[in-house]
Design a protein around this nucleic acid. Structure first.
Lengths: 359, 359
DNA sequence: GTGAAAGCGCTAACAT
DNA sequence: ATGTTAGCGCTTTCAC
């Protein structure tokens, strides 16, 4: 536990000045190979490692990346953003950055809500995942450090964006249901202000039109404020209460889809025979529910990684190129949307209409 | 994006010296209430926040906690340690610390494997989760900063420990199976060098003895090197190959338990009618598999939080009390272990012995 | 109770 | 290509 060597120890051991050592440390040019070697040798011999804080103070670079999440999203049970976060962790490690994680109150305003790591100048760049109030984003911009948004965006952009190809995802989902013989497809959503949700809805409508199917607003339920299980359950219940259930439901995300399935099971509807269900995101749980949920896979870790790659580029080049990356998605067909047997379906709808319990 | 105010700006605005401002900043004694107010006012007026790196350099305190995980554990699919990590994140935020996460190679040795945040003196304390080679722990100790282990421990301890009450957990699980009418209970495990696994096995044996049941080594399968799904599947397969399947399996963790269930289903055994299965950990997936898995709940986030609380205490008091916290567990009875119907069970075992496929 | 001054360990001009 | 010097923004003796 003896005192760690400093740059001065290295310098004297190599019989050089500390500035030369510093040059070597930072891979600067104009150092002869001979001295470079001498310094390197001294460093390994002493087991020297530069002190982070000292470096940070002198260079204004911390080696940290801030990760900001709305607290709505960072409930412990949020599998989606947790995955994105883990992706950033992985990639950051490869670039020798550490991630500092924090949450902001979605609703609250003012300085109170600015992450401490920004105020203390403890990060070189920030990643924001999910929906955040715009005025907050503006505040963060004040700090003049590179910024990447994941699964969100705002009009005026001085930041890069990593987003999901929601349009393609919704199209794949809806077409898949249609190919399975279901032309009446409900949309169940919530938190419609979130760009990703809005895009999924828009593409759902668009795809129906392309397929020559009329968009029926009575089977579009987007009143839920959030996109959790319970919201999906509620929405499905409303759908069932108001009218005959359509033979297919496309939910804005897996959580809502699973909520829908729970409701459907509770009224003894069979999935997919009576009602097919398709979700979006491919959270882990989706392959473990009964029946397994057909969904649109989003590469969550990948998105986190891409965000870090973008951010690192921006940090290196001094807030360089502002770009938008749209990450492809992939339809994952599982049990919940297998092609229907029409007979079974009709029978069930009748059962439900008549409020007859089977089993 | 104007330059942030420094302590000097605060000092001049308050017509005081920077050392006095520093005293207020750090809540030191010997400052009159009047000046304290003056300083506070100046600080809020300027929107001043101390610079992390500067503070760190001067005080040797970084405000960071290092979190170390063996890379074996931090595969992206590791739900157990991810939860613990999230727990530390939550608690750290409350104490104004940030968590720096890293992994170490389990096998590799030498300096190469010492986390950068230790070498660069970028953390004030460290938390280690899961099994880590002892010589590495010794290396970490060299840095002379407080250390807390989660779900692991080594004999010579200069660190606090947060561990699971594995003994009680295994006892609850085994007793539950016995109460369900199953006296022949297999144990399926792996990675037996891990103290938690070893403790579960020991308590399993002990509980059987207490209940007057002979320990049968032929239905104890602990050869698997790891404790993943596939290992559970393999172990169950061995169990089935070698002899009649017992009416109950207690697995060392949920992953293996679910692996066991997958194998059992693949040979058309019914759970729990033919074989009851109980796991350990209560990972998220366990309540979503079919049938839902009975397990021993481990409060993972809670363990992470406790570790941070301990660590913060140690950091404040300069490596104060070394304590071991044993976190209680809780039996969660679900479908996979419902009391058996003896008839069904026997029938199935016969079927299996005769290699007859039903369905 | 408050201030002056000396670093903490490094980077970054600027000289040489 | 290497050395000299002046900070970076704070904490911390040590005087007063």
């Amino acid at each position: 536990m003896k005192a760690r060597p400093t740059i001065e120890d290295v310098a004297s051991k190599a019989s050089l000045s500390i500035s030369t050592v510093s040059l070597v440390l930072n891979n600067k040019s104009n150092v002869s190979d001979a001295t470079r070697r001498k310094v390197r040798d001294a460093i390994t011999e002493l087991g020297y490692h530069p002190h982070r804080s000292a470096r940070g103070l002198a260079s204004k670079l911390t080696g940290n990346i801030g990760f900001i999440l709305s607290n709505d999203h960072f409930s412990m049970a949020e599998p989606f953003y947790t995955r994105i976060f883990l992706g950033t962790e992985f990639e950051a490690r490869d670039h020798n950055y550490y991630i500092l994680l924090t949450t902001v109150q979605y609703r609250a305003r003012g300085k109170e809500n600015v992450p401490r790591f920004l105020l203390e100048r403890n990060v070189d760049g920030i990643i924001i995942a999910g929906r955040i109030e715009e005025h907050l984003i503006k505040q963060f911009e004040q700090f003049g450090i590179p910024m990447v948004l994941i699964d969100f965006s705002v009009p005026r952009k001085r930041h890069s964006v990593v987003c999901i190809d929601n349009e393609q995802g919704a199209r794949l989902a809806v077409r898949h249901l249609i190919e399975g013989g279901r032309r009446k497809i409900a949309f169940v959503g919530g938190d419609i202000a979130h760009p990703s949700i809005a895009e999924r809805l828009a593409s759902y409508k668009q795809t129906l039109l392309e397929e020559g199917i009329e968009v029926d607003p009575r089977i579009i339920d987007i009143d839920e404020p959030d996109t959790g299980f319970q919201n999906g359950y509620n929405a499905a219940a409303r759908l069932a209460r108001n009218r005959e259930l359509p033979p297919a439901i496309f939910a804005a995300n897996d959580a809502m889809a699973i909520g829908c399935m729970q409701f459907l099971k509770s009224i003894d509807m069979r999935i997919p025979d009576d009602v097919a269900v398709v979700g979006f995101d491919d959270i882990e749980m989706s392959s473990h529910v009964e029946p397994q949920l057909t969904t649109v896979r989003v590469f969550k870790e990948e998105m986190g990684k891409l965000a870090v790659v973008r951010l690192v580029e921006m940090m290196k080049s001094g807030s360089g190129a502002i770009v938008t990356v749209r990450v492809p998605v992939q339809l994952v067909v599982r049990e919940s949307s297998l092609a229907q047997s029409n007979a079974a379906s009709h029978a069930a709808v009748m059962r439900h209409s008549l409020n007859v319990k089977v089993k």
